[in-house]
Computed example of a mutant assay.
Amino acid sequence: MKHARVLLVVALAGLLAGCGGAGHVPGPTAPPPVASTGEQRAPLPPAVPAEVRIPAIDAVSTLVALGLNPDDTVEVPPVETPMQAGWYRYGPPPGDRGPAVVLGHVNGAGKEGIFARLHELTAGAEVLVARNDGRTAVFTVTEVVRVSKLDFPTESVYGNTDAAELRLITCGGDFDRNRRSYTDNIIAYATLTGWLK
């Protein structure tokens, strides 16, 4: 794992993470999580994530693996496909111990992106991540923050945690036309509270 390396470069990554598109797609209504209790759950064995669903904002997307760019910034999904979300593969997979990171655009290519409504999430909302082991990890949002990209909270996003947690990241704030970038990031923090089999 490249955790130490990531912490050195994530401040730059925060300038790019999840930025571009805005928009949402109606998703299927998820069944009630049979093992969700609202309490923290023990981490699951590692498995590759396949899909993210956020019923509260009608967002659903497959997940592509994201790594690092040649300049050591974190990759983001192609801005030409703003409805595509991605999972940072050098961090823990969703459901495993630690902070899994999912990035999505707020808009792109003149269209809304998968995380256009991320700022609307509130504590208690559920995020479901389907995995290739046949399980779906159920996370409960604990906090949603808007932060300046100049003060990206690297440690709270990428720092180690004892529990299985999730970070959803996109852009927000005003659009700086000179830099062609948004001024802020929207970050949703969530904790594993159950799973579907």
Rank of each mutant, 00 (worst) to 15 (best):
K2T: 08
A4R: 14
R5P: 15
L7R: 15
L7V: 09
L7C: 10
L8T: 13
L8G: 12
V9G: 14
A11V: 04
L12H: 13
L12E: 15
G14S: 12
G14Y: 12
L15N: 14
G18M: 08
C19H: 13
C19V: 14
G20S: 10
G23A: 13
P28V: 09
A30K: 07
A30M: 15
P31A: 03
P32M: 15
P32T: 14
V34W: 00
A35E: 15
S36V: 00
R41F: 05
A42P: 08
P43A: 02
L44N: 04
P46M: 12
P46D: 15
A47H: 02
V48H: 08
A56N: 02
I57L: 04
D58N: 13
A59V: 07
S61Y: 09
T62A: 14
L63V: 10
V64K: 09
L66V: 01
L68T: 10
L68K: 01
D72N: 13
T73G: 06
T73P: 02
E75S: 06
V76N: 08
V76C: 05
P78M: 13
V79A: 10
T81F: 12
M83Y: 15
M83Q: 15
M83I: 13
W87Y: 10
R89F: 00
R89C: 02
G91H: 05
P92S: 05
D96Q: 11
D96K: 06
G98P: 02
G98N: 03
V102R: 10
V102I: 15
H105D: 09
G110N: 08
G110Y: 05
K111S: 10
E112H: 09
G113F: 00
I114S: 09
F115S: 02
F115E: 02
A116N: 05
R117S: 04
H119S: 10
E120V: 00
L121P: 07
A123Q: 08
G124F: 08
G124M: 07
G124R: 06
A125F: 01
E126N: 14
E126Y: 13
V127F: 10
R131D: 02
R135Y: 11
R135M: 14
T140Y: 03
T140I: 00
T140L: 03
T142E: 09
T142L: 02
E143M: 06
V145R: 10
V145M: 05
K149V: 02
K149C: 04
K149P: 03
L150H: 15
D151R: 08
D151N: 09
D151I: 01
D151T: 09
P153D: 08
T154G: 09
T154P: 00
S156W: 04
V157T: 03
V157N: 09
Y158S: 07
G159A: 01
G159P: 01
T161Q: 08
T161D: 08
D162N: 14
A164W: 01
E165L: 01
L166D: 07
L166M: 08
R167L: 10
D174S: 11
D174Q: 12
F175S: 00
F175K: 02
D176T: 05
R179I: 01
R180M: 12
S181G: 06
S181Q: 13
N185I: 11
I187C: 01
A188L: 03
A188T: 05
L192V: 01
G194L: 04
K197P: 06
